[in-house]
C-alpha cells in the first residue's frame, strides 16, 4: 500500500516487519513480527470460534452447529480417506486446516480501509513449507514406525511388471519426495497470486482516479473496482479450497503411511 511517487508496490504487503520483542535463540535473533502477530490473531479468533461451539448441547445452536460442521467435515474426510485409524490424526489435520483457513481468511479482511495492514501468514513459503515438511515428517515417522523398511514398498505399486520395477520405483520415489514442495508451494503461490492481483487492481482504481484524463481514469477505476469485487469473492473461495486441499493431501499422504496401498 506504500505509494512511493505515485507507484503502488503490490509486493509490499508481503513484507515481514519486526514489531519488536527480540530475543536470542541459539544464535538466531527472534523478533515479534507482523507475521507473528497475525498468527496469534488467527489462533485467538480460531480459539474463540471453537469456544463458542463447546456448549455441548444435544440440540446444537447455530454456532455449535457451525463448529460441529467443521469438525464433522474433517472427521468424515479422515474416515473416508484413512478409515477408523484416521481418528488418531484428526487433531493434527483439523488444526492444520483451521489454522490455514483462518490465516487465509484474515489476510483477506479489508482492514486497509481502517489504516491497518492485514498480513496473510500463508503467503510465505517459509510458513507453508514448514507446514508441508511437518506433514511430510509425520508421514515418514508413521510409515517407518508402522511398517519398518517395508514402507519402501510404497514405491512399487501392486501389479507392476518385474522389468518395470526399477523405472516405476524411481518415478514413485521422485513423486514422493516432491510432495512437501508441491504441498507448500501450492498454498504459497495461490495466496500470493491472489493478493498480488487484488493489489494491482486496487492500484488501478487509485491511479485511475488520480489520472489527468478524469473520464478515462474513472472508467478504468470503476471497471477495476467491479473486477475486484468478483475476484475478492473468488479469493474467499480459494482461501477455503486451498486450506481444504492442504488438509486433504495431508490425509491422503498419511493414508499411504498408515495403510501402505
Amino acid at each position: 500500500m506504500a505509494a512511493e511517487s505515485g507507484k503502488i508496490d503490490p509486493m509490499h504487503q508481503f513484507e515481514v516487519t519486526p514489531l519488536g520483542g527480540g530475543f536470542n535463540l541459539g544464535g538466531h535473533e527472534v523478533l515479534f513480527t507482523n507475521s507473528a502477530l497475525w498468527m496469534v490473531i488467527a489462533a485467538v479468533v480460531l480459539g474463540l470460534f471453537m469456544w463458542g461451539g463447546m456448549r455441548r448441547q444435544l440440540v446444537p445452536g447455530r454456532w455449535q452447529a457451525a463448529v460441529e460442521g467443521f469438525t464433522g467435515f474433517i472427521s468424515n474426510m479422515m474416515m473416508a480417506n484413512i478409515g477408523t485409524e484416521g481418528r488418531k490424526y484428526t487433531p493434527y489435520v483439523f488444526s492444520l486446516f483451521m489454522f490455514i483457513l483462518f490465516c487465509n481468511l484474515l489476510g483477506m479482511l479489508p482492514l486497509g480501509v481502517l489504516g491497518l495492514h492485514p498480513f496473510t501468514v500463508t503467503s510465505h513459503i517459509a510458513i507453508t513449507g514448514v507446514l508441508a515438511l511437518l506433514s511430510f515428517s509425520i508421514v515418514l515417522v508413521v510409515g517407518f514406525w508402522r511398517h519398518g523398511l517395508h514402507f519402501f514398498s510404497l514405491f512399487v505399486p501392486h501389479g507392476t511388471p518385474l522389468p518395470m520395477i526399477p523405472f516405476i520405483a524411481v518415478i514413485e520415489f521422485i513423486s514422493f519426495m516432491i510432495r512437501p514442495f508441491s504441498l507448500g508451494l501450492r498454498l504459497f503461490v495461490a495466496m500470493t497470486a491472489g493478493h498480488v492481483l487484488l493489489k494491482v487492481l486496487s492500484g488501478f482504481v487509485i491511479n485511475g482516479f488520480n489520472a489527468e484524463n478524469a473520464v478515462i481514469g474513472s472508467v478504468v477505476s470503476l471497471l477495476s473496482f467491479t473486477l475486484m469485487i468478483g475476484i475478492s469473492a473468488l479469493e474467499l473461495l480459494v482461501a477455503g479450497i486451498q486450506a481444504y486441499v492442504f488438509a486433504l493431501l495431508t490425509s491422503l499422504y498419511i493414508n499411504d503411511a498408515v495403510n501402505l496401498h
Binding site: 515481514v16 519486526p18 535463540l25 538466531h28 535473533e29 527472534v30 523478533l31 515479534f32 513480527t33 507475521s35 507473528a36 498468527m39 496469534v40 488467527a42 489462533a43 480460531l46 480459539g47 471453537m50 484428526t90 487433531p91 493434527y92 483439523f94 488444526s95 483451521m98 489454522f99 501468514v121 510465505h124 517459509a126 510458513i127 514448514v130 507446514l131 511437518l134
Partner: peptide, 20 residues
C-alpha cells in the same frame, strides 16, 4: 527465518494442543 519458524511452531503447537 528464525522468527517465522519460532512463532509458527509456538502458535501451531498451541493450536494443536489446545484446540486439536
Amino acid at each position: 527465518l528464525a522468527s517465522q519458524l519460532f512463532w509458527l511452531l509456538v502458535v501451531f503447537a498451541g493450536i494443536y494442543v489446545v484446540i486439536g
